[in-house]
Every structure is written in C-alpha cells, then in structure tokens.
C-alpha cells in the first residue's frame, strides 16, 4: 500500500470557504463517532459481562472455575465441565482442521489445474457461509447417527482397550458427544484457516520458491523449507483465528454435544461447552445466582476468545510488517 502512505497534510489542501470547513468538521465528527462506537461496544461487552457475572464470582470465587458440580437445585455452580468440554472440542477441531486446511491451501496453490482453483476455493469458502444452525441439524440428524453406527463402535473396539488412550475411546456409541462435536467444529473452522493459508502461500515471492527448486528441492521440500517458514507467523495467526471461532461456536455444538454436566474422560460421552450451556440454560435460569453464573461463563469465554483473537491478529500483522505484504 505504498501509494496510500501519504500523510494527511499532503492530501488536504484545506479549502478557504468556511462553510466547507464546518461541514468537513461535522463529517469528521460523525465518522469518528462511529469508529468510537466500535471501541465502546467491545469495552461495553467486557464491562457488562463482568458486571452481570459479579454475583457468581463473589459467591464462588475460584471455585467457579475449578468446581465440577453444576447443581441448579442446590444453587451450586462450578464451570469446570463446560470449560473442559470447550477446550477438548476445540482441540479436536484444530487437530482435524489444521492439517486439512494446509493441505487445501497447498492443493489450491500448487496442485490443482489453474481453471479449477477459483471454483474449489469458492466451494471451500461456502463452508463458512452455511449458518451454524444448519451444521447443527445436519450433525444431529445425520452425522451423529453415522458416527454411532460406523465410527464409534470401531473406535471403542480397537482403541477402547489400548493403554493410556483407551479411556478416551471407551463407552457406548451414542453418536452425541465431544468427538462428534469436535469433528463438526473442525469442519466449520477449515474455511477460515484454509483461506488465510492459501492467501499467504500464494504471496510467497516466486524467486524464493524457484531458487529452492533450482537447488533440487522437491515440491514437498519447497513447502516445508521455504513456504511454511516464510509464512509461519501468518499460518499461526490463521490457526488462532480458527481456534477463536471454535471456542465460541454455539449452535452447532449445542445440537451434538448432549448438554451433560458430568465430567468424563471418554470423548464418546456427552459433555457441555461454555457456549452451549449458555444457549441451553439461559432462558430457564430463574434465580439471580443461576443467571449470573451463566453470564460469568460468558465473561470467561469473552476473555479467552479476546486473547486468542488478539494473538491471531498480531501474528497476521507481523507477517505484513516483516514482508510489507498488503491486505
């Protein structure tokens, strides 16, 4: 963006007419006000979540995060199960989405015939356009039964008795649970990671890649030794972006996670996530403490996604600064 680096002072030979200057100031004020609004909204969310959740934080202190009992009847709320479910499902999502997205980016920049690149890229991007409630319905009515019938029995037969990881894959194949939710989340974040990765892969200067090829590298070695190191900070940024999406995704997870408040090691068992707990229970929350606990959950989710998304943004900016790339 070298062309737009010109300073304001160079751009504005201020017109002499006073009416023009007044209107200019008004226009400036309006646009600046709208920009402030964006900032205020973010701060407002943080403040209102903290304020709404203060009762829960005051009542339970650290036990709100470490306690595993979520007992509405006894008015005892510990958020360990939803926190655990959120982290585990997001981890599964990334384990699936990261290699697949990088594979897609590689395919679209290096392998696919040129004419097919744009349509395939659009199709992958459409995955991000499908509303999450559609993912949820598909997950509940088609994918969960598919998992229960074909995937989960195999997993518990073959891996259920294995040492160490066996506990992850034991239990009845009911289809609804952390594994299914994690896979659905993985599919949902693929387009976000893949589109950034594709963009930065194709921004690697051709001479760099060509010199590696000239030295005798195979195309895989070009990816591993040139493209990935060159784009590392942006790819990490993209992964964090995907993580931010996965952590906060609500509707799809709510459909396939099962809304259970028990802590279980098995990935095949139903669980809960922060967003799903809020979606399922908020309108039924009839006491102040119950409602405050759910808003406190929202506060935790907001803080975590804010940090994750900030890291994503900083990593993406770093790539821009390092190489003067635009976008």
């Amino acid at each position: 963006m070298n062309a737009t680096l010109a300073q304001d002072s160079e751009l504005v030979p201020v017109p002499a007419q006073r009416s023009g200057a007044g209107a200019d100031r008004l226009f400036q004020l309006i646009t600046a006000g709208a920009a402030w609004l964006v900032l205020i909204l973010l701060v407002g969310i943080a403040v209102s979540m903290a304020w709404g959740g203060r009762l829960a934080f005051q009542t339970f202190g650290w036990h709100f995060i470490t306690g595993k009992d979520w007992d509405v009847g006894a008015s005892k709320f510990g958020a360990l199960v939803p926190i655990y479910g959120t982290l585990v499902t997001s981890a599964i999502a990334l384990i699936i989405a990261v290699p697949v997205s990088i594979g897609i980016a590689l395919f679209l920049t290096d392998i696919a015939p040129r004419w097919s690149r744009a349509p395939i890229a659009i199709a992958i991007e459409l995955l991000a356009a499908i509303p999450s409630i559609i993912y949820g319905m598909w997950g509940l009515f088609l994918f969960a039964p598919f998992m229960a019938a074909h995937v989960e029995p195999w997993l518990s037969d073959h891996l259920g008795n294995a040492p160490i990881i066996g506990a992850l894959f034991s239990g009845p194949p009911i289809g609804i649970g952390m594994l299914t939710a994690g896979i659905v989340l993985g599919i949902m974040v693929i387009p976000f990671i893949a589109s950034v990765a594709r963009e930065v892969f194709s921004a690697v200067p051709a001479p760099l890649r060509e010199s590696a090829v000239a030295l005798g590298s195979t195309r895989w070695e070009v990816l591993r030794n040139v493209t990935l190191p060159y784009t590392r900070s942006a790819v990490i940024g993209a992964i964090f972006l995907g993580l931010g999406r996965a952590l906060g995704e609500t509707m799809a997870v709510t459909f396939v996670l099962g809304n259970a408040h028990d802590l279980s090691a098995s990935l095949l068992m139903p669980s809960n996530s922060i967003a799903a707990a809020i979606a399922n229970e908020f309108t039924e929350a009839d006491t102040d403490l119950y409602r405050s606990s759910l808003i406190a959950l929202g506060f935790l989710l907001f803080v975590v996604t804010f940090i994750v998304l900030s890291i994503a943004k900083l990593m993406l900016l770093r790539m821009n600064r390092q190489y003067g790339r635009t976008s």
Binding site: V38, S48, M49, G248, E249, T305, S310, K313
Partner: peptide
C-alpha cells in the same frame, strides 16, 4: 479501532446476545 473491529468480527455471537440481554 481497526484491531478491535477484527476481534468483534470473530467474537462469539452468543456473547452479543448476552450483551443485549443485559443492555
């Protein structure tokens, strides 16, 4: 604002619901 806007762009939409419930 540009930085914050990108965060709002990906912020969990359920939080937006809670925010306007409170507000």
């Amino acid at each position: 604002v540009s930085f914050v806007n990108d965060i709002l762009l990906s912020a969990p939409s359920i939080i937006v619901g809670l925010f306007f419930y409170e507000l």
